[in-house]
């Protein structure tokens, strides 16, 4: 890797400078090889990073730009649009996925920062045709109306019932406290989560 300026870098830099954002002259000549440690670099001069992302048990090798969030990569290059993006600021939790089984807002995590950790999305929750107990309970309890917030809510509820065998209603409310549902399906969601916990317990 050398300090070659690509046309894209140049246009990007001059464009930014024209809008009043400081762009260092030195930045145009910086060796891109200094960056990308631990992330891999495509090495094709495109400024793309070659990463491997473990999503729903499969290793996916993709080339992305560093500023792409996990939500953008899931919905874009990986074509998994089950994960929804509402606010894109971590304020609605529609984009909730698991990273190493912990629910996170995928809009507030850079895809390049996921590293070795395993991502599970709504597409990876069912086992073949067999729905996850939380998914089945959402259907049984009519726990959605427009459905936009549903994938995120299901991921949060599923993480809770899998880690806590007997969640209280308070624990369920706490687990989904970050989720906004404009249709107001919350009471049905609480009931579905309680029901799913019982099913999982057997």
């Amino acid at each position: 890797m050398t300090g070659t300026i690509t046309r894209r870098d140049f246009l990007k830099a001059t464009g930014a400078a024209m809008t009043g954002v400081a762009v260092p002259a030195a930045g145009l000549c910086a060796a891109p090889g200094e960056a990308g440690q631990g992330a891999g670099r495509a090495g094709n001069g495109s400024g793309l990073l070659a990463i491997s992302l473990n999503v729903n048990g499969a290793e996916r090798r993709i080339e992305i730009e560093a500023q792409m969030t996990l939500a953008e990569v899931l919905r874009g290059p990986l074509d998994m649009t089950g994960t929804k993006v509402g606010c894109d600021r971590g304020a609605c939790s529609a984009c909730t996925v698991w990273v190493d089984r912990v629910p996170v807002a995928s809009c507030m995590m850079l895809a390049v920062d996921v590293g070795e950790r395993k991502v599970v999305t709504i597409e990876g929750l069912a086992r073949g045709e067999e729905l996850h107990p939380v998914q089945a309970a959402f259907i049984a309890h009519d726990a959605m109306q427009c459905g936009f917030c549903t994938p995120g809510l299901v991921m949060s509820c599923a993480a809770l019932v899998e880690s806590k065998p007997n969640p209280s209603i308070e624990e369920i409310k706490d687990a989904i406290s970050g989720h906004l549902c404009r249709c107001g399906s919350y009471p049905h969601v609480f009931a579905a989560a309680m029901d799913a916990a019982k099913t999982l317990k057997g």
Partner: peptide
């Protein structure tokens, strides 16, 4: 520096990245 003195190359640190991404978005 980005608003006052163009020409400074800023390298910043990321921990969890929540506030960093918020400011960048």
């Amino acid at each position: 520096t980005q608003s006052g003195a163009p020409g400074t190359a800023a390298t910043v640190l990321k921990a969890g990245g929540i506030d960093l991404l918020d400011l960048m978005k």
